[in-house]
Write a protein that binds this DNA or RNA. Structure first.
Lengths: 340, 340
DNA sequence: TTGAAAGCGCTAACAC
DNA sequence: GTGTTAGCGCTTTCAA
């Protein structure tokens, strides 16, 4: 361990491989990087030397010389991280990570609080990553809006403001999903359909309300049964209580996510009403809450892992200079269970 | 963009800072790295230059020169990633990420399938990271057992085999938690207490069964009501069904996680039995399943975010050469709700 | 306390 | 097709 000249544990360098294979370092580099202009024999010799030495390229050196980092940042605002346990988010991360694992890129997870947004931005702009994936529910957060102008960036979820116009993003079609869910309730014969939607500064909350309105309007139904939650089970429970306290007849409910639907279940049951007989319920997200609820919840399935995968795929294309659509919309699917 | 000498968008280098501050690069480097041997005046001048130029050190260059990467890998076996939506895992990742965000280390998320375990191991050993956090439920997976001998590594969860003896790990005290849960059922007057535990090749499954046995034995109760699940809601439902089909009296149930407890709820209700009147139920994990269940589930709370945080903290100490205990056990806490 | 100089391991012209 | 030669931006002895 203290010998200066020999350290059997030293990580082999490209130089060592070159020596063993009897070629120059440049040639080894070519083989490692898959250059076509190398004789098959030489390639084989180098490959063998690499295997014999158990050689692994040093990322730092490679990055320094090539000006490419092979790193992409996955930025999760801390506010989002707090709802990290939200299966939807976890799945996005999972999808992105899985997809990236198929490439040469490494995933650098960055959790950034609002205070650190500046530091994060500098880090991203400082040439430490080749691209970034930005995940957030929060549209209030414009911290990274302009990042896309100088670094390949893909946003998850619709950008909040027009400031993010030029940016790339992938999202699920919330409006269509919500409209479909509402249509389903109407098709089931419900007419007094309420909605518990999310905060209106979040695209998901806003768009799902829009979808509900669209369907209600198409059928000439009353749009007054609206309450707001914050996507938590508790807020759903309270919103449902307010809805019931209004005294108006309600025979259908569309909740903007399954967690709030689960909360609504509690209030409905407490009121002595039954699902779906008295009130048919449709949720959104298709997470565990819906699956384990009693009765199992009819809900809108979102391709959450697919969202992460698609974000990664779009970013990789972007970084390689391939043309990609600025907007990628993923379809939702209604999963009918026993709550409707 | 094509001008060779001037590029206003170029990322400033340490050299530029040195020039602006009128000092050598070495001095700038010292300031950046917090060396004490720099005059306050000089420090200030350099600091100002850094701010003016919006300088960010290049990680690759720094790493290449210093032989330190400032990167820690968070290795998530793919089999585990599939249950990534498991809130417990998501929280561990979150905790680790949050804790690391407080340090100079960057979190490199690695999802490794069994096929790629070799590639991952080489990556980790290839000098690309300063340390690794390895998260897994699966004890069958010994891929990374010996990694700790040549790289600072902290495992999440008890190591499966003795092969991992010398390694560092942090875990929650599953045996104590399970025993406590069972004791609680006994204190509630239950005597025919069943258990739905997890796979016996996973420490969590094994240890929770051990805890249950310990409590049952201490009170001289019969230990025959054992069924196995795979931690999924469905498996819990089926296991409960098998338990009920036995025809033996059951007045208490300890499920090795909340997801299985939620599944068991379904079977109990289907059998026309009520909770907790007929069967009192205790789960494990304290996740959303338990909170939203009807009735709300009494369960064993695990400090999941704390587990991730602690893992990160232990690793950082390890990397800095500070002495740390090989084993860190985190306490659990029984959360009593209406299911008991 | 500060500066000069020598690399860290690799890639990328350029020449052969 | 392959080798030579400069660096990439930073840290780190070693002198001063």
């Amino acid at each position: 361990m203290t010998s200066e000249k020999l350290d059997s544990h030293a990580v082999p360098t490209l130089e060592a491989v070159a020596a063993l294979a009897g070629v120059s370092r440049a040639t080894v580099s070519r083989v490692v990087n898959g250059s076509t202009k190398v004789t098959p024999e030489v390639t084989e010799a180098v490959t063998k030397a690499i295997a014999d030495l158990n050689y692994v390229p040093n990322r730092a050196a490679r990055s320094l010389a090539s000006k490419r980092t092979q790193v992409v940042a996955l930025v999760v605002p801390e506010s989002t991280a707090k709802v990290f346990a939200d299966p939807f988010f976890a799945s996005i991360v999972q999808g992105a990570a899985l997809q990236l694992a198929e490439t040469e890129y490494t995933l650098n997870m960055v959790i950034s609080s609002e205070f650190k947004a500046d530091k994060t931005r500098r880090y991203l702009m400082g040439g430490n990553v080749d691209g970034a994936l930005i995940v957030s529910h929060h549209s209030g957060d414009h911290s990274y809006a302009h990042l896309g102008q100088s670094l390949p960036v893909v946003f998850g979820g619709r950008p909040v403001s027009d400031a993010e116009q030029g940016s790339y993003f992938v999202d699920v079609d919330n409006v269509a999903g919500a409209a479909g869910a509402t249509e389903h309730l109407i098709a089931r014969g419900r007419r007094n359909i309420a909605i518990i939607t999310g905060p209106q500064d979040m695209p998901a909350g806003l768009d799902r309300l829009t979808g509900w309105r669209r369907a209600m309007e198409a059928h000439g139904l009353d749009q007054s049964l609206i309450e707001y939650g914050d996507f938590s089970p508790t807020s759903g429970r309270e919103a449902m209580k307010r809805l019931l306290d209004r005294g108006a007849p309600i025979d259908g409910l569309f909740a903007a996510n399954d967690q709030m639907a689960a909360g609504a279940y509690a209030s409905i049951h407490e009121a002595g009403l039954s699902i779906p007989e008295d009130i048919a319920v449709v949720g959104y997200d298709d997470d565990y809450f819906g699956l384990t609820a009693t009765p199992p919840l009819t809900t809108v399935h979102q391709p959450s892992i697919g969202l992460g995968e698609t974000m990664a795929r779009v970013l990789v294309k972007l970084m390689s200079g391939t043309a990609v659509d600025r907007v990628t919309m993923l379809p939702t699917e209604l999963v009918v269970r026993q709550s409707t």
